[in-house]
Amino acid sequence: MVVGPLTGYHHETYVFPLPDPTGTGPQVRWKCREPRRGLLWFDRRCFVSEELLLRSLQGRVTGIPEIIRAGSTPLQRFVEGTTLGTLHEAGSAVPDQLTDQIVDRFRQLAALGVGDVRARRRCRPEDRPADGDTTGFLDRLLLFTERRVYRHNSKRFDTLFRGLGVDAPCFDRLRLRLRDLTPRPFCLLHADLHRENLIVDPYGGLWTIDWELAMVGDPLYDLATHLHLMRYPAAQGEEMTARWREAVESVRPGASRGWEDDLPKLLAYKRAQSVFTDAIRACLSLETAPDDDPDTYDHTAVQLYHVLTAAADPLGLEAVPSPRDITSALTRWYWEHRESPVGARAEARAARAGTDVPAVQ
């Protein structure tokens, strides 16, 4: 009756049923999770606990997992359904009945301002940008990518970074592109709203899971992250942008102010961030790939080539290495790190999975 551990990066997760407390309803399945230790974090985290955040949002945001306590252990309800990505893969259009619910989720989040979320936060008050300081908010995200993703891992992944043509000056060039954002009032952000974190239940209801990266900040950043990860067809992406603007302005006037100038900047940051996170994930996934399958390297190289091409302008790259050169860089990195410790291989397996949930929930 216990399912698990589910493949995932941040947690080891088990799912099991509990009887209805009244004795009259059906059993409901719950998730018990334990954070994995020693993992690489690619995004800045804001809240101490996802479960505590979800408890504070009950009744204020619809379509989120319920939280109960079993002794001292918080349990998160397992949402029964199918991921949006399984039903409508990245790059394809999403039906109106589901985009309606996505837009409504954005509206509910925008209604929760800086003082409306009581869950305990990780960062010190002095390290939080002032409400409306969108430039400071983005600078902190960029600083995290520079220090915690690039510099912290540069020794281990230096061979690959050099092979991809990215280095420390890339961040100076990127920082110049991201200056002088328009001030906008802050609100709660999911900050990871993509197709695998959206679950469609058997009745067509849309649920939002994996609030691990939620934060308080610039509402336009949530839209930029969503558009970057969802990969809507161009026309639907433009439609969702217009609908997002109407939704957030209805509950937080000024939340979309300056979007024409700032959305391209935020999307540029997301493309640049992907270079470093995707490169590291690619290396970790190769540690568990078969040694005698050259197609694995070629396929990964093509993926990284497209990521680099998309980020060439924000990072100020004069040239992008060819897929063949990227394959060579991946191969060199792999054989330099062939004797990886058990812990690194476990991390690699988790990175290869890339999500806390199975393809079908």
Rank of each mutant, 00 (worst) to 15 (best):
126 E>M: 06
344 A>C: 07
136 G>S: 04
5 P>D: 06
15 V>C: 09
42 F>K: 00
91 G>C: 04
245 R>M: 08
332 R>K: 08
333 W>C: 02
264 P>H: 11
141 L>M: 12
353 A>P: 03
84 L>Q: 05
338 R>E: 08
58 Q>Y: 10
49 S>H: 03
193 L>M: 08
318 E>H: 10
298 D>M: 10
79 V>Y: 07
45 R>W: 06
360 V>P: 09
117 V>Y: 04
7 T>D: 12
219 P>R: 05
258 G>E: 03
24 T>C: 11
245 R>F: 10
341 P>D: 15
360 V>Q: 12
295 D>Q: 12
23 G>N: 09
113 G>A: 06
221 Y>W: 12
359 A>Y: 14
248 V>I: 10
314 P>R: 01
294 P>S: 12
272 A>Y: 03
273 Q>F: 03
167 D>V: 10
343 G>Q: 11
307 V>I: 15
333 W>E: 02
117 V>L: 07
340 S>G: 11
338 R>Q: 12
193 L>F: 04
263 L>W: 11
152 H>D: 00
61 V>W: 02
5 P>L: 12
113 G>Q: 03
182 T>L: 03
97 Q>C: 12
91 G>M: 02
62 T>S: 08
344 A>W: 05
175 R>S: 04
87 L>Y: 06
291 D>F: 11
75 L>A: 05
218 D>Y: 03
171 F>I: 00
113 G>K: 10
300 T>Q: 06
359 A>I: 11
335 W>P: 07
271 R>W: 10
247 A>K: 03
69 R>I: 13
290 P>C: 05
172 D>V: 09
50 E>R: 03
167 D>L: 08
79 V>T: 15
316 G>W: 02
28 V>I: 09
264 P>I: 09
335 W>N: 08
307 V>K: 04
114 V>P: 07
60 R>A: 11
137 F>A: 00
179 R>M: 13
214 A>Q: 13
161 F>G: 00
329 A>R: 02
194 H>F: 06
248 V>H: 00
209 I>S: 00
35 P>F: 01
148 R>H: 01
138 L>W: 01
37 R>V: 11
270 K>Q: 15
115 G>C: 10
137 F>N: 01
216 V>E: 04
216 V>N: 01
324 R>W: 09
250 S>Q: 02
122 R>W: 14
357 V>E: 12
15 V>K: 05
129 P>M: 04
262 D>L: 08
51 E>P: 07
258 G>H: 06
342 V>A: 15
130 A>L: 14
53 L>Y: 02
84 L>V: 06
68 I>P: 01
124 R>D: 11
2 V>W: 08
56 S>D: 04
213 L>R: 15
280 I>V: 15
278 D>Q: 12
158 D>C: 10
189 L>H: 03
277 T>F: 07
225 T>R: 14
10 H>Q: 14
336 E>A: 13
85 G>Y: 00
65 P>C: 05
21 P>D: 07
178 L>C: 13
125 P>V: 02
258 G>C: 05
350 A>M: 03
45 R>M: 13
339 E>M: 13
183 P>C: 04
357 V>K: 12
39 L>S: 06
62 T>W: 06
256 S>A: 15
360 V>Y: 08
290 P>L: 01
355 T>K: 14
82 T>L: 10
170 C>M: 06
143 L>S: 02
